[in-house]
């Protein structure tokens, strides 16, 4: 996992719970005084250990931790040069979803060792759009839900998310169905 994600979790905990809690989490994750460089690849096990330690420390299910963090990441990423790419030229919610994919695609081209995920968006005339989340990592789908919610909130739309296909239940990859309930979804 690239350090930007780990740093997002770190910043989230520092912002919401303070240094002491972060120190406890690092201790539990066996990563004392953990700090990360944004564009360096870290062992995925570190990320899973941090999520697990956050879950234990805050007494929240791991899925909920990931969802909350995904939501937080939308704002956090704006403070980073790479995160800003998502918003470049994006005016609508759908622009942003596409920006998310483009950003990851470009990271993939330049730094393939970071093994970034892919987000393919299929716009549908009936309003039941599909987002294909393809990742080499398991268990992070709840974070995608948080990301979508965070981006929708930023764009002032309400979106209904259904997790139609789930990799953890044998599907090839995760598929979310997004139904935009209100606000301007696309520049169309």
């Amino acid at each position: 996992m690239y350090g930007l994600v780990n740093n997002g979790i770190r910043t989230f905990i520092l912002d919401a719970h303070g240094e002491e809690t972060w120190a406890i989490i690092c201790e539990k994750a066996s990563l004392p005084n953990a700090e990360f460089e944004n564009m360096t690849a870290y062992d995925d096990a570190d990320t899973y250990a941090i999520v697990s330690a956050v879950s234990e420390t805050l007494d929240l299910p791991a899925d909920e931790v990931l969802r909350v963090f995904g939501h937080y990441w939308v704002g956090f990423s704006k403070s980073t040069a790479i995160g800003k790419l998502i918003d470049h030229g994006a005016e609508t919610f759908i622009d942003r979803i596409r920006g998310l994919d483009e950003m990851h695609e470009r990271v993939q081209m330049t730094m393939p060792h970071l093994d970034p995920p892919s987000f393919e968006f299929e716009e549908s005339d009936d309003g039941n759009h599909r987002l294909h989340y393809i990742s080499g990592r398991e268990g992070l789908a709840p974070m995608v839900v948080g990301l979508i919610q965070g981006m929708a909130e930023e764009c002032g739309v309400s979106v209904d998310i259904s997790h139609r296909e789930c990799r953890s239940r044998g599907a090839e990859h995760d598929i979310f169905e997004l139904r935009i309930e209100s606000g301007a979804a696309s520049a169309a």
Binding site: G3, L4, E35, E37, N38, M39, T40, T80, A81, I82, K84, L85, H88, M103, R106, V107, M109, T110, M111
Partner: peptide, 23 residues
């Protein structure tokens, strides 16, 4: 447009490098 992510990553890496140097 393709230069944008390269520049963004370069900026991130420079920031990483600055942070690492400071630390």
């Amino acid at each position: 447009a393709d230069i944008l992510p390269l520049l963004a990553m370069q900026e991130e890496m420079l920031e990483d490098s600055k942070r690492k140097s400071a630390s």
